Simulated assay, not measured.
Amino acid sequence: MSMGQAGMLFVFGFAFLIAAIMIVSMLVWASTKKAQASAAREANYRELAAKAGEDSAEIKASLAELKGRLASVERMLKEVE
């Protein structure tokens, strides 16, 4: 192998190595971004679930209050009759 061919082989090998490193870096970066987006989405779902639980408790309390008022109105109507 002549010196020119060895030099050319070295350059192509080095270029292939750089390309491989760049491709792997891009894949790692993409998977990291995907994981971050997934974590953010899961955090939003958790927040939404917590808010839904709080809203459900408020609705239950309001419903209990309304049932109590309805019962008192029914008692008053029965007394009037």
Rank of each mutant, 00 (worst) to 15 (best):
F16S: 11
T32Q: 10
K33Q: 13
A50W: 06
V11H: 03
I23T: 14
A52L: 12
M76E: 13
A43Y: 00
E47S: 06
M26G: 01
S25F: 09
L17I: 14
M22A: 15
W29R: 08
E42Q: 14
A15Y: 04
A71W: 03
M22G: 14
I21K: 06
Q5T: 05
Q36V: 10
R46H: 06
A37W: 04
E58I: 14
G7N: 13
L27M: 11
M76G: 05
K78I: 10
E79D: 14
A15F: 11
A52H: 05
A64M: 05
L27W: 07
E81G: 12
A30W: 05
T32E: 03
A71M: 06
A20H: 06
G13S: 09
S38I: 08
G68Y: 00
Y45H: 11
L9N: 15
A37M: 09
E42T: 07
E58W: 07
A71E: 10
A52K: 06
F10I: 09
K67R: 15
R75I: 08
I23P: 03
R75K: 15
M76C: 03
I23S: 13
A71N: 11
G7K: 07
Q36G: 01
F10L: 13
L66D: 08
F12N: 14
L66P: 00
V24L: 13
W29N: 04
E79T: 12
V80R: 14
E81W: 01
L66M: 11
I59C: 01
L77P: 00
L17R: 12
S62C: 06
G7S: 12
F10A: 15
N44D: 10
G13L: 02
L27P: 03
Q36Y: 07
R69H: 09
Q36C: 04
E42G: 00
E79F: 08
D55W: 03
E74V: 03
A64W: 00
K60C: 03
R69F: 09
S72T: 15
L17K: 11
G7T: 07
I21H: 02
A64I: 05
A15D: 02
R75H: 13
W29L: 08
G53E: 10
M1W: 10
K60Y: 04
A35F: 01
A50G: 05
I59E: 04
R69K: 15
I59R: 11
A35P: 01
E54H: 04
F16M: 06
S38D: 08
A49V: 02
A61I: 04
A19T: 01
L66C: 02
S72N: 13
A52Q: 05
M8P: 00
K78L: 15
L9H: 09
